[in-house]
Amino acid sequence: MDKFPIHIAFNFVFLRKKITGIRVHAIELFRALEEQKETKYIFHVITTKEGADILNEHGIRANGGIKVHIIASSFEKETDRLKLQLFSLNNTLKQNRIALLHCFDYLTPLQRPAYAKIIATIHDLIWLENPNTYSLPKRLFKKVFFSHSIRKADALIAVSKTSKESLIQHYGHGYDQKTTVIPNGLRNTFLTIKKQGNPERLIKGEYIIAVGRYLPHKNYERLIKAYAHCNTKAQLVIAGSDMDKSVDLQRLAQELGLNDKLLLLKNPTDAELISLISHASLFVMPSLTEGFGLPLLEAMSLSTPVLCSDIPVLKEVCENAALYFNPLSIEDMAAKITYALNSSPILQKLIENGHERVQAFSWENSAKQVMNLYDDLLLNY
């Protein structure tokens, strides 16, 4: 087998139109890796037809240094995606002499060529730390295949120190040396639009915003209850995917008499999200647990002051660029929101600290660390 070129594959089979943290991580990291790719490497993208269309929208397509392999048209059910990721990659890996497969989440194929290395990515262990986020079948699936994947992977990437510490806490110190912390960065979309000036306002008047999928660990119920205790004219806006399933939040708002003050926005586009965050008086993340917290970087970059839960991972990301509250205390959350809204010096200091803190995160730096990991794994290839 010739030493060069070395073929590296990327598992994009999971890709769908719904914007998630893993999707952002995968696309942004790959684009940064593509810019830094050495001539000795050829990149292979393994995805579905739907995934290829999404990647094409982001400027990722076949060229001299990138080959795209479509192994299915799309998948209708989550179980179909899992089957593709577990059982349908091996032939592509063998046929293209893939030396290294980079998986953007924890799930790795059950079979691979003996010579192929695998990197898996640890975003969080929410299914262990906040189990009511997932159904029992999903928790059982993750329990089985997470253990298999981290054991079989040659290297693991954790997106935060907190995620790595959680991994070691639950699975043992044997994963310390195997795991490299490589943080997320700020989306290029946000950097580009920020340079274009202030985006058009979508909501009239003052408002507070929270961004993220409708999931139990996002802690939106307590946020709404805390907001009900705040004497403010500002609306509360919660924007993210699956908001069409948020019947419980709508019912809670009705019970608290907040129907005209709570706005739930489903699946905002990047441009809409940038406008929503940049014009908000406060950005609030009340999560009980997270793997990283990408929207925090987005809020900091758009000069929106951040309030968030006093949990290790968010303190790791924000440091002194956020005002913290106890996510289990409705009273503390309400007090901190009220305090921030009525203290211009505090808000200005948070904005200034946010501008400084966000500079610590870039996909370019993350890609350099990943490239070093590739070089280490393929040293004797």
Rank of each mutant, 00 (worst) to 15 (best):
V306Q: 06
S343K: 04
A360D: 14
A367G: 03
Y324M: 05
Y324E: 13
N353D: 13
L323Y: 11
L328W: 10
Q359R: 13
N353S: 12
V306M: 11
C308Q: 02
E319P: 02
S309K: 05
E298H: 00
K349I: 07
D332C: 13
Q369E: 12
E352V: 13
Q359S: 04
V313K: 10
V370H: 10
T338Y: 03
A360C: 05
N326I: 07
I311C: 10
S343H: 11
L297A: 01
Q348S: 15
M333C: 08
A367S: 06
M300Q: 06
M300V: 02
E298A: 00
E352G: 05
E331F: 11
A321V: 04
I351W: 07
A360T: 09
I330S: 02
I330E: 13
E364W: 14
L302N: 01
Q369I: 03
Q348N: 14
I330P: 05
S301V: 01
S303D: 07
A367H: 12
Q369H: 05
L314Q: 12
M300S: 02
A321G: 05
Y339K: 05
C318R: 03
F325S: 09
C308G: 11
L347Q: 15
S343Q: 03
S329R: 12
W363S: 06
L347C: 09
D310F: 00
T338L: 14
L297R: 07
Q348C: 12
E356W: 13
I351A: 08
P327Q: 09
E319H: 14
S303K: 10
